[in-house]
Simulated scan of single mutants.
Amino acid sequence: MTVGVPAFETTDTPEKNASRAVILLRHAATTGGEGRAIGRTPLPLSPEGLRQAAALCKVMRQCRPAALYASPASRARDTLGPLLDECTVHLIDDMDEIDMGQWDGRTFDSIRQREPEQYNRRGRDMAHFKIPGGETFADVQRRVMTAVRHMAQGPRPAVCITHAGCLRVVACTLTRTRLEDLMSFRFSHLHGLAMTGPSSALHLEKADVTLEDLPSLL
């Protein structure tokens, strides 16, 4: 799905394109998710998140990346909300947060109390435990890396607004970290990572990218 008006065209060669960054950022801050298992549950941006979104879009107007992408989740789209009537934002389903299935939107306290065995199993096998009706982080890794390579084949530099879970599996892939250790990577709102290189051999250009880093990367 695409929203907005046509994007600017690029005539970069494949070699030049590969030297430009693909940047993934976590969406702006939200409200209502504290203490809950949030995957596909929609959340509004908080007042701080709205300020973050405005600051990000100001940088995007100044730096004019060749492509903008977002998860279809409302919190990712709202992060680019000020730009939606100015430029194209491509919505990529595979960059959505992990599907938490029957746990989605519930409090972790209620899950721990009512399904203690499953709760503990997930803690022991974060990479491969599948919540009923949901998906594993191994599933997330496969779909997200496919989407990342697809974005890398398109116009660059590119920016994608996504989620903490997606950023964690990409960080594991690029640093060759075991997926079981994905929770060792932490991404605050509007923090992320930058990749360069050809789509078949992307490497980590910068970890913990912040809003202040974007002008030099774009």
Score class of each variant (00 low, 15 high):
Ala7Val: 08
Ala7Asn: 15
Thr10Trp: 07
Thr11Lys: 15
Asp12Leu: 14
Asp12Phe: 10
Glu15Lys: 01
Ser19Arg: 09
Ile23Thr: 01
Leu24Thr: 01
Arg26Ala: 04
Thr31Cys: 07
Gly35His: 12
Ala37Cys: 13
Pro42Gly: 09
Pro44Val: 04
Leu45Cys: 05
Leu50Trp: 14
Leu50Gln: 12
Arg51Pro: 08
Arg51Asn: 13
Cys57Lys: 14
Gln62Leu: 13
Gln62Ala: 15
Cys63Tyr: 08
Arg64Asn: 15
Ala67Phe: 07
Leu68Asp: 06
Pro72Arg: 06
Arg77Pro: 07
Pro82Asn: 05
Pro82Cys: 11
Leu83Ala: 13
Glu86Cys: 03
His90Thr: 11
Leu91Glu: 12
Leu91Asp: 06
Ile92Phe: 13
Ile92Thr: 14
Asp93Trp: 13
Asp96Pro: 12
Asp99Asn: 13
Gln102Asn: 12
Arg106Ala: 09
Arg106Tyr: 02
Phe108Gly: 15
Asp109Lys: 11
Glu115His: 15
Gln118Asp: 10
Gln118Val: 14
Arg124Asn: 12
Asp125Ser: 14
Met126Ile: 15
Ala127Ser: 07
Phe129His: 13
Lys130Gly: 12
Ile131Ser: 10
Glu135Pro: 02
Thr136Ser: 11
Asp139Cys: 14
Gln141Phe: 00
Gln141Leu: 00
Arg142Thr: 10
Arg143Val: 03
Val144Phe: 04
Met145Ile: 07
Val148Lys: 01
Arg149Cys: 09
Arg149Thr: 05
Ala152Ser: 00
Pro155Leu: 02
Pro157Cys: 02
Val159Lys: 03
Ile161Cys: 03
Ala164Pro: 02
Cys166Tyr: 00
Arg168Met: 06
Thr175Glu: 02
Arg186Met: 06
Phe187Lys: 05
Phe187Thr: 03
His189Pro: 05
His191Ser: 14
Gly192Asn: 01
Ala194Lys: 04
Met195Cys: 12
Pro198Cys: 05
Ser200Arg: 15
Thr210Gly: 01
Thr210Glu: 03
Leu211Tyr: 12
Leu217Asp: 01
